[in-house]
Simulated assay, not measured.
Amino acid sequence: MPGSPLPRRMMATTAASVMCATVLTGTAQAATALTVAADGSGDHTTIQAAVAAATSGTVITIKAGTYQGQVQIPASKSGITLQGATGVSADVVITGSTPASTAGTAGSATVHNLAPNSTIKGLTMQNTYGKGSQALALYAAGDRQVYRNVQMKGYQDTFLSWGGTGAKQIRQYVYKSYISGAVDFIYGNGALVIDSTTIESLDTGSTSNNGYITAAATDDSNPYGILITRSVLKSSAAARTVALGRCWHAGGAADAIGQVLVRDSTLGGHIRQAGAWQDMSGFSWRTCRFSEYANTGAGATTGTADRPQMTASTAANHTAQRYLAGADGWNPVP
């Protein structure tokens, strides 16, 4: 389960000959293009080396292969893009197997992205550690980040959106992707939109409890937390054994009043009918802001008191655009 105050929980190159190019137009310098290839046919053999060489706005194209070890993208690399060369997310795999029990939350993350205005697309990020500790595939800690056509795979705490304590909030958009895990595997306090994505709860073998999808710790001053929209929630786990989420008061903070909305999505039969929202660490789920709107599928229901449904008038103000707009009107939604 999430831990205390610090959570535990293109310039796309189309010609293979262009491995590293800086284009000047007048006095403005365009983004640098770098290629990563494990076989030595690119500018770098590791993603981390390419990130270190990158400047703000660099596009890093990664050739097919499996890349071991953590990738850290610092905040100074604003506007950076990491993209798989083939456009098939399974072709480029960034993988690690580090638990937070030995490395801490950030240290466990296979990809730790602090860069604002960054984009990651067409690749897989995974942490294969499994049961026993939080072990992140992605720790997203920068504002205005976009993740398209990616896979995030883990077990506990796969994907963290975290902007630090207090009311300051980061924004992230995940589109046409895949996220898997078992325990609190989409969590944090960011304004996070997951759109047109497959969310798979792993089968832990239990006949009664196969985990929790979300664990939001949204600050009570922020109206928007986690939005899952136009997505598919699926699992091979036993029927009615997976919760939509639970109420995470990070570090016991009273003002961490998580906000989650699941709307316009297809919910499989693994979702609990009663008990779809769960208490956590002594805090009732009713202290958080959990709701659904216009869902379909075997796991959807409108008939129980513990499955709050948002009204149509309220839902009109809980769109992907509203979650992400902030004060600057950011809108990455296609």
Rank of each mutant, 00 (worst) to 15 (best):
M1I: 12
P2M: 02
G3D: 01
L6A: 07
P7E: 05
M11N: 13
A12C: 07
T13W: 10
T14N: 13
A21G: 13
A21I: 13
T25P: 00
G26I: 01
G26M: 04
A31E: 10
V36N: 00
G40F: 10
G40S: 06
A50Y: 05
Q72V: 15
P74G: 05
A75R: 00
G79K: 12
Q83P: 02
A85E: 15
T86L: 13
V93Q: 11
S97A: 14
T98I: 13
G104N: 03
A106P: 00
N113V: 03
A115H: 06
P116E: 03
P116Y: 04
I120T: 14
G130W: 07
Q134N: 14
Q134G: 11
A141N: 08
R144Y: 05
V146P: 01
Y147Q: 01
R148Q: 11
V150R: 00
Q151W: 04
M152C: 10
Y155M: 04
F159K: 03
W162D: 14
W162L: 06
Q169A: 14
R171P: 05
R171I: 00
Y175E: 15
F185P: 02
G190W: 11
G190E: 14
I194C: 06
D195R: 06
D195Y: 04
T198M: 12
D203S: 12
T204A: 09
G205E: 11
S206P: 10
T207F: 06
N209Q: 09
S221P: 02
S221V: 01
N222R: 08
I228D: 07
L233V: 03
L233K: 00
K234W: 00
A238L: 09
W248D: 09
W248C: 03
G251D: 08
D255S: 10
L261N: 07
T266V: 15
H270S: 11
I271P: 04
I271G: 05
R272A: 12
S281P: 04
G282R: 08
S284W: 02
T304Q: 12
D306T: 01
P308T: 11
M310Y: 01
A312Q: 13
A315S: 14
T319D: 12
Q321T: 15
L324N: 10
G326L: 07
G329D: 08
G329H: 09
W330M: 02
N331E: 08
P332F: 02
